[in-house]
């Protein structure tokens, strides 16, 4: 019981972003702006891989920060700030996915420019790299291939991968963020990494783009 009471203090002392959020709770606008500056690109990076387009990812990022601000008065430092924030990100992304499923729009993976990749991996790579110097072309091609490989993962796997790879979250933190058990996270990440390995193997071994993926399974829940 005593350790539970000490828990919020622990995060307040260790995590400077928790202290900033506590200032936001006290209506400190500058603290909110500071938190946004620290996290907006990280939130956008995750949402970019979960949304059909860059513009939608930006809209969702703004919605995340709007929710952070609305929730300020009920904020309690029960976990790391990033864990709390990405719980909101996960919820916003899930809602957007459900809404999109309801609208029955054709889901297509996003490209960095915000265009939709629906014409197959080879066409996409060719279209993007056709007029570039070879070194730049190779880099762009690689990015396109990796981005397309991510679309082979279902949204939950993708979320777990993004949190693990880009946010450096532990399995326990991912579990808390996604509201699942640690063993479920372990399973999600294992399957995701095996899928990525299988999809990227031709590129890694022979430099060939992986098989195209039409994205039909990208929004399906596991």
């Amino acid at each position: 019981m005593a350790s539970q009471q000490r828990q919020p203090d622990r995060y307040e002392l260790r995590d400077p972003d928790v202290r900033l959020m506590l200032q936001v709770r006290d209506d400190d606008a500058a603290a909110f702006e500071e938190l946004m500056l620290r996290y907006q690109h990280r939130v956008l990076r995750v949402l970019e891989h979960l949304s059909p387009s860059r513009s939608e990812a930006e809209d969702l990022t703004q919605e995340v920060f709007l929710r952070v601000f609305r929730a300020r008065k009920s904020y309690t430092p029960d976990s790391k700030f990033s864990t709390w924030l990405f719980t909101i990100v996960h919820r916003v992304a899930s809602n957007a996915r459900r809404n999109q499923a309801r609208r029955r729009e054709a889901p297509l993976p996003a490209t960095p420019s915000g265009e939709l990749a629906g014409g197959g991996m080879e066409q996409l790579v060719q279209a993007t790299t056709g007029s570039m110097p070879s070194r730049v072309m190779a880099k762009v091609e690689m990015r396109q291939i990796v981005r397309a490989a991510l679309t082979h993962l279902n949204p939950r796997q993708r979320m777990a991968v993004l949190l693990n790879k880009f946010e450096g979250m532990s399995y326990a933190d991912i579990a808390e963020t996604m509201g699942v058990s640690v063993s479920a996270v372990r399973s999600l990440l294992s399957r995701a990494r095996v899928t990525l390995k299988d999809v990227l193997e031709p590129y890694l071994d022979q430099g060939r783009p992986p098989r195209s993926h039409n994205g039909s399974g990208t929004w399906a829940s596991q």
Binding site: F32, E33, M36, L37, Q40, H41, L44, R45, E48, H49, E58, T61, Q62, F65, L66, F69, P112, K139, M142, R143, I145, V146, R147, A149, L150, V161, K165, R193, V194, L196, K197, V199, L200, E201, L204
Partner: peptide, 29 residues
């Protein structure tokens, strides 16, 4: 192979956010 494919994810571009985006989020709030 698992490590190599995992390392490739680092090739994904860093997301850039401009000042206008921050400003429009603040305005929204």
């Amino acid at each position: 192979k698992l490590e190599a494919s995992w390392d490739l994810l680092e090739e994904l571009p860093q997301t850039q956010v401009d000042e206008q985006f921050t400003q429009s989020t603040v305005e929204l709030v």
